[in-house]
Amino acid sequence: MFTLIQQAPLSAKIGMVIILLNLLTILLAPQMAPYGETELVGDVWAPMSSEHMLGTDQLGRDMLTRVVYGARNTISIALTIVFLSFVVGCSCGLLAATMGGWVDQTIGRLVDIIMAFPTLIFALMVLSVMGTSIPTLIGVIAILDSTRVFRVSRAVAMDIEVMDFVEVARLRGEGLWWIMRNEILPNALPPLIAEFGLRFCFVFLFISSLSFLGLGIQPPTADWGSMVRENAGAISFGIYSPMYPAAAIAILTIGVNLVVDWMLNRSSLLRT
């Protein structure tokens, strides 16, 4: 494991450092932030100073504090969504691949229909009907996203399903669940981990966009997307406060992409 990381190219190492820093921020948010999450501490849109390293926001809250807490809220929601969509998508994908027949057909057609619908429009429509709350948000995006996970996990599992050891397990009389968990899943893991990174980027950008549109995580919770929205007015006065949360989003996605790129390259090198 350690040598593996040492052999990684510089770009992947940068990516790993970015991810690690973000994780630390999530864990230590209350210790790192100089003020409270919703505490009013100064003037509106105060410039950078020694007390407020990134200035203050549109209500006079410390920007750095908001960015630190924003990491916690935004990233943990995005992670929950991706986990959920992997649980749903992978189990459907593996099930479709191992069982085949009408199960495969039914799930496949359903996924075709959902995927023919632009994701953002779908999410907007559901939110307009159900109203915006964090559980709805998590549920909707997880289901929409699980369709892509389904496609990938099914394709991977199809390749493994025809292998001899699966046949042997079948002849041995193992149950469906056992075959899925002990024969197929462990062999499907490497491409699925890379996919996890890609899905995380997608979900993370998606939820930030929704919050930016004012339809995602609602204030006063600190969240990177809605912070950009709230501070957007400042930009025409030449104050760059909306840039900090936006930059935080950009840096994290680039970091994850760098690591995923390296993993994909590595697995394609191993195969050939």
Binding site: S209, F212, M243, T253
Partner: peptide, 11 residues
């Protein structure tokens, strides 16, 4: 590809 559209827009 990694940047959110609104970030590009504000830059």
């Amino acid at each position: 590809i990694s940047l959110p559209e609104f970030f590009v827009a504000y830059i």
